[in-house]
Nucleic acid binder design. Structure first.
Lengths: 132, 132
DNA sequence: ATGTATACATACTATGGGGTAAGTACTTCC
DNA sequence: GGAAGTACTTACCCCATAGTATGTATACAT
């Protein structure tokens, strides 16, 4: 019987921080490079899987699905599928997901003010920030 | 004459837009498991290196230093050292770092509302959230 | 002389997030 | 009848981040 590693210090630390720190709690849910981008795209409303994929060309399908599943199990988005022949699946923000808007907005605002050379670029993006 | 644009400029621009995503920009700076915690600890004011270490017992020195350096080069914190014999080094938030307060606060607020079982715990933490 | 405190540095290892590539099932379009 | 679209799945690999362990310089206290 080979001993299986049950304790990973990384996981332990994650857990501790996660329990104690609300910011870490949020990071766990929206952290990584893709999740904020996905959420950002869903702020504008319900979208089909294929539409999301087209909106974010450089993400791979595997990673997109992966994050969508994660976001779904975290209760941030809602998946709806119609049992039709060319599959028809849509994703939309849940109530909790929608509640992230001010968080994302605060981050974007900070980027505009503190983005250095990129500030102007960010400002343009902000113009498209869905406010409702 | 070389062919100039075969690919849709719109798509290209979209792509660039995502590369230049303001939220991603912020994530780059405050992402990871430790950075938000470090920043959180510095929100209460200037601290010595050793004080930080004691505040975050489970972080290793290597990782703490690593992030402090990164935060410093990103202009979020300021390092000050006195050339005395037992070294005396303090870290404090820069102006940009302080500007992160609303971001961290928005995240914490979301955690309180959407933390499920942990909401109460987070609420306690929020009581300690430095508001000034 | 030995230990302690401070603020790091460095070499090595391991975990996991994300990327690459290819496959699947089903149907409509040309 | 072969290509194309749709929403995935699966197997494999890479590398950045984080953890372990140990070393360094200095001065004071015991």
């Amino acid at each position: 019987m080979t001993a299986i590693k049950k304790t990973s210090v990384i996981q332990e630390n994650k857990n501790n921080a996660f329990i104690a720190c609300p910011v870490t709690f949020v990071m766990e849910r929206i952290g990584g490079y893709w999740k904020p981008i996905i959420l950002f795209n869903l702020l504008t409303g319900t979208k089909r899987y294929s539409a999301l994929k087209r909106s974010i060309p450089s993400i791979t399908e595997k990673v997109l699905i992966q994050h969508l599943k994660q976001l779904e199990t975290d209760g941030l988005i809602i998946r709806k599928s119609k049992p039709v022949v060319p599959p028809y699946v849509t994703y939309e923000l849940s109530k909790q997901g929608k509640a992230l808007r001010p968080v994302l907005h605060a981050m974007a605002a900070w980027a505009v003010s503190n983005g250095g050379k990129q500030s102007k670029q960010f400002q343009k993006q902000m113009a498209d920030f869905p406010t409702a």
